[in-house]
Amino acid sequence: MSTQEAAIVGLTHHGSEDTGLGNRGPQSKSIVVPFGFWLFVLSDMVIFSALFATYASLVHATDGGPTTNELFDRGLVAVETVALLLSSFVCGLAMITAKRANMAWTQLWLVLTGVLGLVFLFIELYEFSSMIAEGAGPQRSAFLSAFFTLVGCHGLHVTCGLLWLGTMMAQIWSKGFQQHIIRRLLCFSIFWHALDIIWVAIFTIVYLIGTLT
């Protein structure tokens, strides 16, 4: 059996000794670290599932106040969605150039990732502030409490992600493309893609289903 055939049936992975598939010791760090971070991301999604369940239970509990149809603007949501999706895509490009240790392109893609994330965040803050100005703040009804908790929690994640992004850009700049820095960047990209997955659920369940006539 050639090495390639062995790789296809899963006995080995390109001849590497640390696949964990036999008695060859633990997986390499480049496998274990993203796996651990993936577990964190999945548990974060479990938290969001509770927030989604709360929102779905309370969406009609408007206490005579504004309803989903009166509050949400699909145009703004479309721009937010495209900005976050492009941000996720550009983050992937940054990973491709980072693997090849290309400083200029990596920093450029990461800046673009951050700018698109900021566009998303500013639109969300604009939406929140105009809702609060109209008297549709989180204290108005159970529906609005659930809305601000769910969407605000996602926005908070994006904010933290942007801070992390800035940190990673500084670390790449000062420490270069060392193995552990690349692993951190990989974890950031997993986080950033996961936020986009959660946003897909938010724009579908909250905004699109909320504005069906």
Partner: peptide, 29 residues
């Protein structure tokens, strides 16, 4: 082959998310 653990973790996560969401919506409804 590198992804088996990731897929299993994902499957477990999807199960929990499904139970929490469908269970809550069903019962609260």
């Amino acid at each position: 082959p590198d992804n088996t653990n990731n897929v299993l973790a994902l499957a477990f996560g999807v199960m929990i998310v499904f139970l929490v969401m469908v269970g809550t919506i069903w019962i609260m409804g």
